[in-house]
């Protein structure tokens, strides 16, 4: 599934990083701890978090993640948006809680 398809299917808001919308997603990763994502997230996963800080994009870029979903209707910091444009990593948003959006997306990638 492509990032753009995921966004459409789950009604995710697209804040920025449209360049990366055609990327193919391999699965999901949930964490609010940056070190955890640094250590364990895998390439092309979509990262679900409530962190809105620009470091999120720095880590997503380092780990070659497909996209970032910010939960609970939180707005990304302006620097985060800017960073997402620069890196071409889509920054998405939802009003749902982490549990709910992860619960729904998981079904798409269930092996």
């Amino acid at each position: 599934m492509k990032v753009v398809e995921l966004a459409e299917k789950f009604g995710l808001e697209i804040f920025s990083g449209n360049v990366g919308l055609q990327k193919e997603i391999s699965g999901g990763y949930v964490s609010d701890l940056l070190s955890d994502v640094m250590g364990f997230a895998l390439e092309n996963q979509v990262w679900i978090t409530l962190q809105t800080h620009q470091n999120v994009i720095a880590i997503a870029s380092l780990k070659d993640l497909a996209a970032v979903i910010i939960v609970k209707g939180l707005q990304p910091d302006p620097e985060t948006v800017k960073h997402s444009e620069e890196e071409g990593i889509p920054l998405l948003g939802t009003d749902m809680e982490t549990f709910e959006i992860a619960g729904k997306i998981y079904k798409e990638f269930e092996i």
């Binding site: 549990f99 619960g103 997306i105 998981y106």
Partner: peptide, 8 residues
């Protein structure tokens, strides 16, 4: 992610 998916 997986735990959330399965429990959901």
């Amino acid at each position: 992610f997986r735990a959330s998916g399965v429990l959901y």
